[in-house]
Design a protein around this nucleic acid. Structure first.
Length: 574
RNA sequence: GCCCUCGUAGCUCAGCAGGAUAGAGCAUCGGAUUUCUAAUCCGAGGGUCGCAGGUUCGAACCCUGCCGAGGGCGCCA
């Protein structure tokens, strides 16, 4: 099995507890082993004795004594210590750590847990609207969704990344009207999205004053949804132009999807979905609309067919779920959207369950992004386009590269600036709890020092450099012939952190929290930087030198792997 | 009115579902490059974890109330 060390120790300590207290119910107790809060307490700790104390009417310390006395240590544990009110501190066997790291280095795949084997997960993320530019509000879904995508793939899941485009909404009536009356063909050719946005805004403004205009727009929408060929052609043009532009951004962000299906794709399933609801007797009429009441679940009513006969988002999403479940048989479907959709998904998931859908449906929401001057809105022009943010990041990164690496050729500088700039933007989002509300500032989004992607990339580049230097100076030595030693406290500290990578990824996946990985990588890089700064590598004596280079190599591997899970590149030189 | 979040150092944020002395970055101050990339490292100061109760061996974390911020609540997506 490829269990993480944390998992192995947890399983072991649970066995010990059940042996010491046979017949004692342990279900409600938290018997898992967790990393220690401080390295002086060892590597992992078990806090279960305090919880168990009341239940078995014994003192926590006595329980700890009994457990420690009874336990047969597994090969990776050096010793146990009892501390404080009854903590059981676990110290890993350092020589076991060394051989374990050596094995990992030879066969890195062998330690990657594969909970996702033979399981499919659909991740619905990014999902911009057709005919509107992507702005900074889209960055979170895109970047967080993509990180989850990568993390789940790493853990062996078959991931279907699905970009669920907003291509079927009410905006198309207004757009078609705008297209007919205000279109500037040249502008459309040069800046398609800007032009579509312009005609949309113009049409929207006219609709506010002109009821006939609005009625006409509604009619065009109905015609489109009924398959009118003229409108369909225009709509297809909108979609193609938008996709081209989105694709450009995704390429810059190194993001690719397995499916790009808009809401329109599920249009034909809508009547069937309605029939299912009807057959299950979930459909009720209310104020002229077809609705599903969710009073038992204490949720507001959900409209699935409007008074005017049109379907809305709820219906489309239900049809989407049934279609996905039927086609891919996923183990779970993950939606990554902002917090405003919590109620919506709550309703949809509840109805889906009533419809007999067993698939685990998860809504991962994140806090809304706002500007210092308030919430942004397309209509009021308070938007910062994503493209501009990316440009700005690369520009700022380039300035720094030019001053710190003046000897690098211009192309390489540009390439490094690209990786660093884009990395910084992604990291700024991925290193914090997704659920916190974020106020966008250029300074924060483009931070290039401190707790940021470039710090990690820098550590990576230094490792790549030192490996090259080593290979140059000692071409004849085979590193694998020398064991990894964890004798210096700095080395051991690095060792335990390397070992903890797998459980970190596992935890990030379990809680849908890429920032756990970001935190871990930063911690690892900090530990490495201290190591790098304080002990010699190339000038260490033979054996120690090889061991340290092997450790460097492993840190580099984990940094590269971890950053890749966040979608961040690691240039060899920066 | 009801529901969902958030409130942690001057600023930006972590804090591994209740554990030991609450941690980073930025900013400020003081140190470290004849030596492996100084985009670095070492050190210092800085805290009523919004406020008030409660639960228990133990609370930033759970419960209740209040204050402040964001979002949502029938024909938008």
């Amino acid at each position: 099995m490829k269990d993480t060390i944390e998992q192995q120790l947890s399983d072991w300590i649970k066995r010990v507890f059940t042996e010491v207290f046979p017949g004692e119910p342990m279900e409600g107790l938290h018997l898992d082993v967790v990393p220690t809060s401080n390295e002086k307490f060892g590597d992992y700790q078990c806090n279960a004795t305090m919880a168990l104390a009341k239940q078995v009417k014994k003192k926590p310390r006595d329980i700890a004594e009994t457990v420690v006395h009874h336990a047969t240590l597994p090969e990776n544990v050096e010793r146990l210590e009892i501390a404080g009110p009854g903590f059981i501190n676990i110290f890993l066997n350092t020589s076991w750590m060394s051989t374990s790291l050596e094995k990992n280095q030879q066969d890195p795949d062998s330690v990657v847990p594969q909970p996702g084997a033979r399981k499919t997960v659909i991740i619905d993320y990014s999902s911009p609207n057709i005919a509107k530019p992507m702005h900074i509000g889209h960055i979170r879904s895109t970047v967080i969704g993509n990180a989850l995508d990568r993390i789940y793939r790493y853990l062996g899941y078959t991931v279907i990344a699905d970009n669920h485009l907003g291509d079927w909404g009410t905006q198309f009536g207004l757009l078609i009207m705008g297209y007919r009356h205000f279109l500037n063909e040249t502008a459309l050719e040069e800046h398609p999205i800007e032009e579509l946005e312009r005609i949309y805004v113009k049409s929207y403004e006219k609709s506010k004053q002109d009821d006939a205009w609005l009625d006409q727009a509604r009619e065009e929408l109905v015609k489109l949804q009924q398959g009118d060929p003229t409108n369909k052609t225009v709509w297809e043009e909108f979609v193609q132009l938008s996709l081209g532009e989105f694709e450009h951004i995704y390429k810059r962000l190194s993001i690719s999807f397995d499916l790009v299906r808009g809401e329109s794709f599920y249009n034909e399933n809508l009547p069937e979905t309605m029939n299912q609801l009807k057959d299950l007797d979930l459909l009720k009429e209310s104020e002229g609309a077809q609705v599903v009441f969710l009073e038992e679940e204490k949720l507001p009513v959900c409209i699935v067919k409007k008074r005017d006969g049109g379907f809305n988002y709820a219906t489309t999403d239900l049809a989407t779920i049934t279609s996905r479940v039927k086609e891919f048989e996923p183990d779970r479907v993950i939606y990554v959207t902002d917090e405003r959709q919590q109620l919506h998904f709550n309703q949809i998931f509840t109805i889906a369950k009533k419809m007999g859908i067993k698939t685990k449906l998860v809504h991962i929401w994140f806090g809304l992004m706002q500007l210092p001057e308030g919430t942004f809105s397309t209509r009021e022009g308070h938007v910062i386009k994503l493209e501009r943010l990316l440009d700005e990041a690369e520009t700022r990164a380039l300035e720094i590269v030019q001053t710190t690496s003046p000897n690098m050729n211009a192309n390489q500088q540009k390439e490094v600036a690209r990786a660093v700039g884009i990395g910084a933007i992604k990291y700024a989002d991925l290193s914090q709890n997704p659920q916190s509300l974020v106020t966008f500032t250029w300074e924060k989004a483009l931070s290039l020092d401190g707790h940021s992607a470039p710090y990690l990339q820098y550590a990576y580049a230094r490792i790549a450099s030192i490996k090259d230097k080593y290979a140059e100076q000692f071409p004849a030595i085979h590193l694998d012939d020398y064991p990894i030693r964890l004798e210096d406290p700095l080395e051991r500290r690095l060792g335990i952190k390397l070992i903890r990578f797998q459980e970190t990824v596992h935890r990030a996946a379990k809680h849908y929290r890429p920032n756990f990985i970001a935190d871990y990588l930063y911690d690892l890089a900090q530990t490495y930087s201290a190591f790098y700064q304080n002990v010699p590598f190339l000038k260490a004596k033979k054996g120690v030198r090889e061991s340290r280079i092997r450790l460097c190599t492993m840190v580099g591997f984990v940094l590269g792997q971890g950053l890749d899970l966040l979608g961040i590149e690691t240039p060899k030189r920066i």
